[in-house]
Amino acid sequence: MSDPVEMNISSDMDVVRARQEGRSKALLIGFSVSEATLIATAISELARNIVSYAGEGVVALQAVQTGSRSGLVIVAADKGPGIANVSLALRDGYSSSGGLGLGLPGVRRLMDEFDLVSAPGRGTTVTVKKWRPRM
């Protein structure tokens, strides 16, 4: 089990760094290249939301093991303006159907578990998990 990684996110270069770190960590703990790409893409979206909406925040990566399952937990947290309407943010609205365009429904599809905690003025924390397929 590898050590947790925590990265400060405040620029578009940090977004690139975070997703590269996520990819290498995913590969390190045994995910396939294809799964690592899904994870890197999800991190890219989450980290960009931090830069775009909060200015700065943190992305943390942690390998997890529960029973026979192992996987990766990603926490993207900021102290930005927060999301007033969480259900609207989770509505699929990439084109124009009324979502907030944060890419969160897409991130939810990329990962196995998804949790969003946010309130206006209180920042946003998104926690996502990807489990390795059982052998």
């Binding site: 290249v33 294809s34 790409t37 899904l38 890197a40 893409t41 979206e45 699929d92 990439y94 890419g103 429904p105 897409g106 991130v107 599809r109 990329l110």
Partner: peptide, 13 residues
């Protein structure tokens, strides 16, 4: 790349 295409479709892009 195939993996990138797969992730794009999942993301809805």
């Amino acid at each position: 790349q195939p993996d990138v295409a797969f992730a794009m479709v999942q993301l809805g892009l």
